[in-house]
Structures are given as C-alpha cells and as structure tokens.
Design a protein around this nucleic acid. Structure first.
Lengths: 250, 250
DNA sequence: CGGTTACTTGAACGAATTCAAACGTTGTGG
DNA sequence: CCACAACGTTTGAATTCGTTCAAGTAACCG
C-alpha cells in the first residue's frame, strides 16, 4: 500500500499556515526540509471521529494542522476522563510511537486536518537532527506540565475554581494560536466534554457554568463557550495563567 | 565552585546497583561511559527534605539512586496535590531542565541518594547519543502515561477504587525494583500523603483505607502501607496493572 | 413533524468534608 | 524516669458539596 494513495498532500511545510505564528520558534531551512520530507501527507477526520484509538499501534504520528480534539481514557463501565485537548500545532500519537500501543484515545471536536508522519523515521530524526530530537522531548515535557496542572485542579480545586481554570486554560491556548481572530471566539465543546474533563457530573457542571455565567465571566452560546472575562476566570481559579515561551512545531 | 567539593562521588555507573535489575535495558559500553562521565557526583537528601523546589532553576538534573520521594504542586492557600512518586531509577528535574524553571516541587519520603548530572551537558547528549536522547523522550512519555492513569483515577474512580488503584500502583512499581525483597514490604507513606494524592481529605482517606483493610487487601503498619492482596486491589480498582517493558536507566 | 441532542432546573439522596476529640507512639527536656 | 509535646491514626457527628433522578425546554435534522 502506497502512502501517496492514502493521504492527500496539500500544504508543504515551507508554507505552513501555522508556522508564522508568534508562538512557534523559527526553524532553519535544513530542519524545515527534513520535516517536510518527514511528512508523508495529510488526513482529515470529521467532527466526532476517532483520530487514534486506545490499544492501536498506528504506523503514524500526527500533528494537528487545523481543528480541535481531545485525548481521553475510559473505564470498563464507560466512565470517561478527558485528559487534555489538542489544538493546531499539537503533536498527537507521540506517546504511542514510543511506548508501542496507544494508552489513550483521541477524538475530533470539530473537523480536523492532520499532518501525517511515519513512526519508522523517528530513529532517523534522532540520529540526524538533535535539535528536533530535543524538541520532541520538550513537547513531551510540555504535555507533562499541562497534566500536572490538570491534576492539581481536579484533585484540589473546588468545582467552581476548577471550571474557571479549565475554561481559562482552553481560552489561553486558543488565544496564542490566534484561533479567535476571525470568528466569535467560541470554545467548541459541549458541557458533557467539560464535565468529563472536570471529573464532575453533567448536572453539576451545568450549575457551575451557570454560576460563572452569572458572574459575567463567560457565556454559553450555540454549542460552545464564550469567554467574557479572562482575568476574572484566572483570579477565581487562583491561577497565574499559561505562560509559554516559543515552542517547536514539528 | 568545583562540583567535586560539593558532591561526593561514590558509585561509578559501571557498577551501579540498579542497573542489573531486570527492568532496565542493557546499555552499551559506550553509553555507559558517557553516562558515567555525565554524572558529576552524588547528593543525599534527608527524609522530608526538598529535592527540587517549584520556581527554582537548578543547574542540575538527577536520577534517584535510592529512597522514595514525591512530586507535588500547591495552591496559594496551602492545598497540596501529589502528582507522582519517585523511586530508584527515576529521573527528576528533566521537565525543569527543558522548560527553564521547575513547575513543581519534589520532596524526599525517606533518605534519598541522587546521581547528579549537569543540565548544560544535555545538548551534548542529544548531539552524540541519539539512543540516549530517544530514552529521555521515552522517560518523559512514561511520566505522561502515569499522569494519564492518575487523572483517570482521580477524575472518575470512586474513593475506594481510587485508593485501591493508588496502592496497587505504588506496590507494582516498587515490586519491579525489588524494593520489597529484604524488608517487610512497606510503602513508606503517611495517610496524609495518600490523601493528597487521591484528592481526598485525610479523614475520608482514613475511612477508605480501613475499608480496604477490612477486605484484607492491605494492612497499615508503623507509618506505611503493607499490601496483602495485590490481585484484589487491581480487581477492585478495575485496572489491568502497570505493564512495562524494559526501560532505560540514565 | 417526530426524534434526537444539548441545556436547564428542582428535589432527594449520597458521598466527602469539616469539626471535634481521643488514642498510641516517639522523641525531648527537666 | 517521667511529663509532655508532636505527630499520625482513628472515630463520631454535623454539614456541605456533588450526584442521581426526574422532567422540561429549545434547537436542529431527516
């Protein structure tokens, strides 16, 4: 099976729409050439579709080019915990690439476009591009940091603080990607998604969000959350916010 | 300041007591030589002492040679969340080495001995030893996986399941390190530590542990937890257990 | 227009926290 | 050697927080 037959290749990395964003560190021509060659194509997943499933050992590794998704794990009886969200520029499937099979699933929250890479060329990356290798470790460490914050939130913050933290977190990440520039600035999640992230029931999540809305911190619009007062959310959560230096885009 | 004056160097990596353990992948002579050279000395931290503190930008990176510790974060008002535990063979401070300053603290649960490495030589490692570079990413991905499991547990498991999961997790990790061979096989934590890991109050943690004890799954002995029935704990938690292939020891 | 999905609300219930107090062990200073 | 402080564990009772149950509304879609 040829990869060209399976994945359409639309955007070459040299004119990637994400790369000009301020958040991403500049790449050398050589790095860019390798990444572009490393990329074997693009793939799209419809909203609600599965990007990667727990247990699977994909031959591929992805970077989100556009769209939102989330990583989650489930217990046998169906209880679901959302671990983190993925947005443009985020690499997905790295953990699976290193550890063998996927230990979590990833689902699309909106139509998602992915850059597709071949796992098998990772060794080459490590051999020839130490800077990119370092970047991969950095990316894993960043995810770890986010999970640390999340764990603190779920374990120790009250429902109200926790919800404020989560919405602020999602808002800030999207903001640095300039995802709110053109549109209405809506975080494309249902209350069920937030509930499964917060470790709360859907009913209590709703009541908590209503409280945040009553405080004029956010507003709920057609299937999404609109942040009205990011500073208020941060203060309520007791959180300094998500400060990030330039990061790699592979 | 010479590093030799600050850190005693006792064990050369070639006859590291941990390396012969089954869990660790064999290293080539060359890799071993680099790691041994990378190591600038050893450091000890007394029980209850701080190994690394949030906000600090240490010039060093460590691997635990002996003893137990834990990673945690705190909210302004003192609420503490334990994120993970560290045991012999675990690298600590990697996240800080990559992201600049530490985003969490690490405290010793028992007297701890650390192998000390210099952050500044990390670039060299990436340049000259792609296999070790890969290992570092792998180590970060492993931590991520553990945090994923933890998040699922705190977010979605009941108090009883959660406690069973945690104790089983700690037991299994210690078991693969053969930490229970000589002694009584006690996990050296107070109930306060477990409470701060589970996201529960100390009172409710106590009541939950008593239930597990009543089920003959564990026993509480002089400041520590003694596992009586690991399979029972795993079953109650609805967890398949912590399967791990050979891993690197840097 | 009937079915589905997402949001919303009230009420009853259950789980976990907080408050309060007691017990045993360990270590310390008189 | 004893008094006593410090710490960790244990238990009961009152309270708060969050869940579950139940129902209803609004928007969207085939």
């Amino acid at each position: 099976m040829t990869v060209e037959g399976k994945f359409g290749k639309a955007i070459p990395c040299q004119n990637c729409p994400l790369r000009p964003l301020e958040v991403f560190r500049p790449f050398t021509g050589e790095e860019l050439a390798f990444v572009s060659d490393f990329k074997i194509g693009e793939q799209t997943v419809e909203s609600g579709g599965t990007i990667l499933a727990e247990g699977e050992t994909s031959a591929h590794l992805f970077t989100v080019l556009s769209g939102w998704g989330f990583r989650y794990k489930m217990l046998d009886d169906g209880r679901r915990q959302i671990l983190n969200y993925v947005m443009p520029g985020d690499m997905v499937g790295l953990q699976g690439s290193l550890m063998g099979e996927m230990q979590h699933s990833i689902e699309a929250l909106s139509p998602v476009t992915l850059c597709v890479f071949k796992r098998s060329r990772l060794a080459e990356l490590y051999r020839l591009y130490p800077e990119l290798a370092y970047d991969l470790t950095w990316i894993a460490a960043r995810e770890e940091r986010i999970l640390d914050e999340n764990l603190l939130s779920i374990g120790r913050r009250s429902a109200l603080e926790r919800a404020a933290y989560l919405v602020a977190f999602l808002y800030q990440r999207a903001e640095t990607l300039e995802l709110f520039r053109g549109g209405r600035g809506v975080i494309p999640v249902t209350q069920q998604h937030l509930a499964d992230t917060l470790g709360l029931s859907i009913v209590h999540t709703n009541k908590t969000l209503r409280k945040l809305a009553a405080l004029n911190l956010l507003r709920w619009v057609d299937k999404g959350c609109n942040v009205l007062d990011i500073d208020g959310l941060l203060e309520l959560a007791g959180w300094e916010g998500f400060s990030e230096t330039k990061r790699p885009l592979i």
